[in-house]
Amino acid sequence: MTSIDVTAFQRLEAEGRLLKPALKAPTHRAGRFGFRGEIALSLDPPVTLEAAFAATEEGNAALSFLAGSLTSYKQLPALVEILGPSAKADGKYFIYVGDLDRASRYQISIDGVSLYVFPIDDTSVYNELIDVLYLDKTKMKKFDTAEKLDVIADGAAKYDQTFEAITYEEGLKRL
């Protein structure tokens, strides 16, 4: 059974950044640990990556998968800074941002960490992930939280869609 202490979540947990967990436990995949909740970017003022889904494998110092929602595009650098060594260049990170134009779909690299950046409206990160990863929503309804995270993380690992690659600064100009 995989313990949080041997995963990329250990530091985030020690810093008190893993909030409101619906899941913070091993998943059904051997050696995988998952998190479903919020990740604190700052405590004062409180800023979080909401509706977060994340996974890593035992002994891995970085998250293999992360998805969640930010209120503002300007919060992206803070997210990458907080993740620090818990993020890796080849991880699959899907960030939904509330203040992006609906047609916006970007790949942005910040400090060597590549992010898929999408707009989000009145839907959930979960529903957005099911759509973008082409997962079967009917099958997903039958799964528990850990199994849903496994299916999403596996789908993200296979994801190879490309979007316009821009810098963070270029994205600021498009707001």
Rank of each mutant, 00 (worst) to 15 (best):
K88C: 11
A89T: 11
A89W: 06
A89G: 08
A89M: 11
D90S: 11
D90M: 11
D90F: 11
D90W: 10
D90H: 11
G91I: 02
G91V: 02
G91R: 00
K92C: 02
K92D: 01
Y93L: 07
Y93Q: 08
I95T: 01
Y96Q: 07
Y96K: 08
Y96I: 04
V97N: 05
V97E: 00
G98D: 01
G98R: 05
G98P: 08
G98C: 02
D99T: 05
D99N: 13
L100R: 05
D101G: 11
R102V: 00
A103V: 02
S104T: 09
S104Y: 12
R105C: 01
R105M: 05
Y106K: 07
Y106M: 03
Q107E: 13
S109P: 00
S109W: 08
I110C: 01
D111H: 11
G112I: 01
G112N: 03
V113L: 00
V113I: 13
L115T: 00
Y116W: 08
Y116G: 02
Y116L: 05
Y116Q: 06
V117Q: 06
P119L: 01
P119E: 00
I120C: 01
D122W: 10
D122P: 03
D122E: 14
T123A: 10
S124Y: 09
S124H: 08
V125R: 04
Y126P: 07
Y126F: 13
Y126S: 09
Y126A: 07
N127Y: 12
N127W: 12
E128A: 10
L129P: 03
L129V: 02
L129K: 05
L129S: 04
I130M: 03
I130V: 14
D131Y: 14
Y134K: 13
Y134E: 14
L135Q: 06
D136V: 03
K137E: 12
K137H: 12
K137T: 04
T138K: 15
T138I: 13
T138G: 10
K139W: 09
K139I: 04
M140F: 10
M140Q: 07
M140N: 06
K141L: 12
K142Q: 12
F143V: 00
D144Q: 14
T145Y: 09
T145Q: 15
A146E: 08
E147G: 09
V151E: 15
V151Q: 15
I152Y: 02
I152S: 06
D154Q: 14
D154E: 15
D154P: 01
D154K: 13
D154L: 13
D154G: 06
G155M: 11
G155R: 12
A156T: 05
A157N: 10
A157R: 14
A157D: 13
K158H: 12
K158I: 05
Y159C: 04
Y159F: 15
D160M: 13
D160Y: 11
D160A: 14
D160V: 09
T162K: 15
F163Y: 15
E164A: 13
E164Q: 14
A165L: 12
I166M: 01
T167Q: 06
Y168D: 02
Y168F: 15
